[in-house]
Simulated scan of single mutants.
Amino acid sequence: MDQNRSGRNTLVRLRLLKMLLITTGMMACVDEVQLPIRQVQPRLVVEGMITDEAPPYAIKLTYSGQFTSRSHLPENLVVNGAIVTLRDDRGRTVRLEQDPLTPAYYWMRDTTFRGQPGRTYTLSVRLPDGTVYVSTPEYMPTVPDIERMYARYVPAPNEGLQPPHFRIQLDTKDPDTVGNYYRWSAYAYLPRWATGDPYGCCTTCWVPDYGLLSDVQSDALINGNRISGRVVYDIPVRAIGMQYIDVRQYSLTRTAYQYWTLFGQQVSRTGSLFDPQTASIEGNVHRVEDAGTLALGYFGASAVSHQRLVVSSADTIDVPKFVFRYDKLFRLPGSCLQIYPQAQLTPPPTW
């Protein structure tokens, strides 16, 4: 019996050795594949709009390329020395001024040139090498008023360290006419905590927070009806204090709506090897000598309905319970002004 068992063990070892040799041979036959790195030529990127709010209006001009961080724009990607003009459908033209401190931005500061719903506007950009780009004429639709804006408190889940948040919602009324398109933008100044510097300074500050740029909606399914409880912003609560919220409701043309829809789809992608590169969405600005050569980004014209809201988290949240659960997590060491570069020690004074 021992001899039989020994024979079976030897047979098993021989089979394992044979499988190992076959696998090794197969691996040796696989050649290394060098995947090509996508190289994209720099392209003009145009971002900005004219509204029916009082000037100034800003147009940002850059070249597409590799960014090392969101807060720093490499000098070689800034469009310096461009001639930028804005023209209305009555033939009036104004020139924009380049910002000396943030040269990617060109400003229209003429207070006598203000956007009006029902009018059409065209942007022109002459690059330093003489190449001229122009937008298709952009019509400014009217926009209904934001009738009401309010915050709904959403408690934190029982499990994990996810904080509670305020859900900002609004009510408005879509006109009876077909073909209305909307975009919402929102930002806030939110309180944050820190342990402070060695002198005991700067333990509380207010830090800007921004919502999505591509929050859009068509009236295809709701034409002429009320838009009630439209969620436009979710604000996480990481410190107890006053929350200062600013929301704008924009009107869009159909072309602008399609652009921002594609923009939102791209931003929402998780990012993989086969995703298109960032800022790959062509807009409504083309080269004069070749209409098929399009810039990236979009020049828009929009009417705006604007509201602000102040929310006190101390009136809603159980403060001792919040501090017990989140203080060590959200009270970061150091000065509030050093931890958050855009922080300010006092709430926004004009709210």
Rank of each mutant, 00 (worst) to 15 (best):
N158H: 09
L96K: 05
A186I: 01
T203S: 05
L212F: 05
H286S: 12
P333H: 05
K321C: 06
T122S: 14
Q41S: 14
D275T: 12
R38V: 15
V94C: 04
L20W: 07
Y150I: 09
Y106L: 10
P144N: 13
C29T: 15
Q41N: 15
E47C: 06
E147L: 15
R308N: 14
Y199N: 10
D246Q: 14
T24F: 15
L86P: 02
V125K: 05
T255N: 08
F324K: 12
N80K: 11
L16Y: 10
R325A: 12
L77V: 02
V12E: 05
I240Y: 01
V134K: 08
A186Y: 00
V231E: 10
L73W: 02
A194W: 03
V46N: 01
Y121D: 04
Y57S: 00
Y150C: 12
P347M: 12
M140F: 07
A301R: 01
R230Y: 12
L252A: 05
L96G: 01
D246N: 15
Q116V: 13
D89Q: 06
N76W: 03
S335G: 10
S312D: 15
R248N: 15
D290E: 10
Q338N: 11
V232Y: 00
D176Y: 08
S135I: 09
P347C: 06
Y181G: 02
Q39N: 14
Y182K: 04
T270G: 11
L96W: 02
N158C: 05
I317F: 03
P155E: 08
P236Q: 08
W260D: 00
T10Q: 11
Y106S: 09
G297I: 03
Q34F: 12
T131W: 03
N76L: 06
G292E: 11
N158D: 15
D110V: 11
F299T: 03
L190M: 10
A58N: 07
N223P: 00
M19F: 12
A239S: 15
S6L: 15
T316F: 03
T68A: 06
D145G: 14
R308I: 09
E75D: 14
C202L: 02
C201F: 09
V125H: 07
V267R: 08
L77E: 05
V178D: 06
T293G: 02
L296F: 10
V237D: 00
D290T: 10
T93F: 02
G200W: 07
P100Q: 10
P128R: 09
T142P: 00
A303L: 06
I22H: 01
R230S: 01
G292D: 14
Q277L: 11
T350D: 14
P320N: 10
A104F: 07
F263E: 02
V216Q: 03
T24Q: 09
L101F: 12
P191R: 06
